[in-house]
Design a protein around this nucleic acid. Structure first.
Lengths: 213, 213, 213, 213
DNA sequence: AATGAATGAGCCTTCATTCAT
DNA sequence: GATGAATGAAGGCTCATTCAT
């Protein structure tokens, strides 16, 4: 009981610090955030932070890894939640925009502070990234094989799917976006489908050229 | 003569410093770059730099503004170099990827260090940006009116055009891209056209379905 | 029984901590040793140490006093173990070099970390030192009175007896010595005797100048 | 002229800082001295110190090396200033006690803070030390060959010459000495000569026994 | 008695910037 | 205009010590 309590307290303190750091990093960036900023925001003492994390960079790394893991897991999850390629892509876009909207701090941090990461973290990330990209590529390849998607190199496919919603997200995060997120999902999903669909007939507007419904 | 010489020297010195700063910012980011780094790289003295620029931030701002101006000018230029919407979009993509490839330091700096800018620069940029986005929006609107492009909100249109090539560029800059730039241009341009074309018939594959143009 | 056991445990724990601290101080010096170093080496918790010692300095003081007491007791002991002055001096030198060899950590700590001691400990030490020096001086004076030693001021006598073996010991402890300890004892003892003998006839080589064995 | 002036200023500032640091190190030891202590004592700013020295350790090293070099140079100088062995030894002892008396801070620092030195400095010192010990050993060997000194291993010889005056110096520096330095020189020199003289006849008292010289 | 999480003063160092020459 | 020595605020981090459990 005592132990559990202690652990719970420690874990909670850890979370407090992580959340505080995230908020700071999102607002000011890694470099302009000081340990004092974090300390104050977390209501923790200097020593307390260093008791739980070995350095400011360690904090940033823990945060980055946690965030990217959640983001990528959601991505893959969304992708595999649908069997139909078109719907899968739409699900990914919807999920990501939702995630970004619901996790603005995370998004701000993950998508603009990568440059501040140390080589050590890059290493850890490389593994996660490779797995993520591998899974995405595998899914993509299987869809291409099944004739559900145009054959495209993985880097291009990735740019076509993620580029638009990320650019839109950047506008949202910086207050420059005007289109509401739910509308954006539809528009971006449709555009992504046009870009990736195997042949024109699969495109929305083509249906009226002869066939049914 | 002496004066001229001096002036030329001053201007040259200014350029040396700017180039050195750019290289540093691109490599290390704004915060991790020290004035000493710049000083050494530019073979300039501390006083020399402060004689020409009022602060590190001023240097970064001058650089950012110069870069973004060049980038945006090229964008608009490419856009207006073609009357045909499809070709205009392709020209923009081609130009941007070329520019990024030929100006890696600029690209690295412009596309990943915005967070480090001060409010003062943001202000200066806002103006430039507004003009840029305004010109782009105007062009886009005129094309929509002319039935050459699908009607889309400007933020979405922007995301659809720039998102993919920027994402691809990020991959290039970080060494993760595999598709060569010249191939990427074609693929990205086609995808962009699919996403923005007014109706399916305008799409590449649809022509073979019998009808029009 | 339980209590006894506990007490034994406490005493043992105390010793563990003292030994660990000694090893650390000998290796790193007082200042560069952290409580964490000691804690780890002693397999003790922070609280445990502070339960038995009031501070890092307290630990260092306890250690210093214990060590110096042992060293000085041995000194006096050796001195008084012989009635003959020459043999007494030899016994002191032999004992000290032996002690230093068998207690390298103690020696390293005692002979190079005095500077780190607080005023409070200095006070405690002054008493012990006074007694020690007093005893040595008394012995020395009695030998002088008996014509067994040259009359010399106590500080000089001390320097002549202890200086050489301490300097030699320093070389041993730092790995710079080449003469083995047992040989050194003989050489240093003879030299000390030469320096302190009442008149030349008492010196080794003088015997052959006329008289007998 | 301007340059000279600047250099003079810089050099003077350097000296100020070194002297201040020396005083602090001598008084408090390396670890307990803070850069603030030094800064204040030298009337210099933080940056000024770091402009001239790369770290606190660098300062300590520069000081140590300078001091030891001066001390050792004086040693060798004194040694070689006399052709007669006995007088040479006396000269060394006289010089060292004088030096220590005139350079109390140096002495305190050199003879009690060696433990605080980093490996990097140890390296630099090793060279200097080797040369010093080498020169001393060479001199000693030549004297032994000439029958002016007893044959003794270098470490023992060193202990016999330096040990006593260093121990006496320690007493002086800590206020425990009672014999005035000029008297001590004579007593220690005589004792050293007794310890190192080749045969008893060379000793002071033996002459009156009839034979010799 | 024991544990180890928490505390916070204080340290060394960095670095943008100023200014005398 | 140029130089680089000097400045000092501020930052990340360490570590002896306290205290709740």
């Amino acid at each position: 009981m005592t132990l559990k309590h202690t652990h719970a307290g420690t874990a909670a303190r850890r979370q407090d610090i992580l959340r505080a750091a995230l908020a700071c990093f999102a607002e000011l960036g890694f470099s302009r955030t000081t340990m004092t900023d974090i300390r104050r925001r977390a209501n923790a003492s200097t020593g307390s932070i260093y008791h739980l994390f070995t350095s400011k960079e360690d904090l940033a790394a823990a945060l980055y890894c946690e965030g990217i893991a959640d983001y990528q897991a959601g991505w893959i999850n969304a992708l595999e939640s649908r069997t139909n390629a078109r719907e899968a892509i739409r699900a990914v876009i919807a999920h990501c925009l939702e995630w970004i909207t619901n996790n603005e701090d995370w998004a701000r941090y993950l998508f603009s502070q990568r440059a501040a990461l140390s080589a050590a973290v890059e290493e850890r990330l490389r593994a996660a990234n490779e797995q993520f990209l591998g899974q995405a590529a595998k899914w993509f390849a299987s869809q291409v094989d099944a004739g559900q998607l145009r054959p495209l190199p993985p880097d291009i496919a990735n740019a076509l799917i993620a580029g638009p919603y990320l650019e839109y997200a950047r506008q949202v995060l910086s207050g420059r976006a005007e289109t509401p997120v739910d509308e954006a999902v539809g528009l971006l999903a449709e555009a992504a489908w046009r870009a990736l669909a195997p042949h024109p007939e699969a495109l929305p507007g083509c249906r009226k050229h002869g066939e049914n419904k």
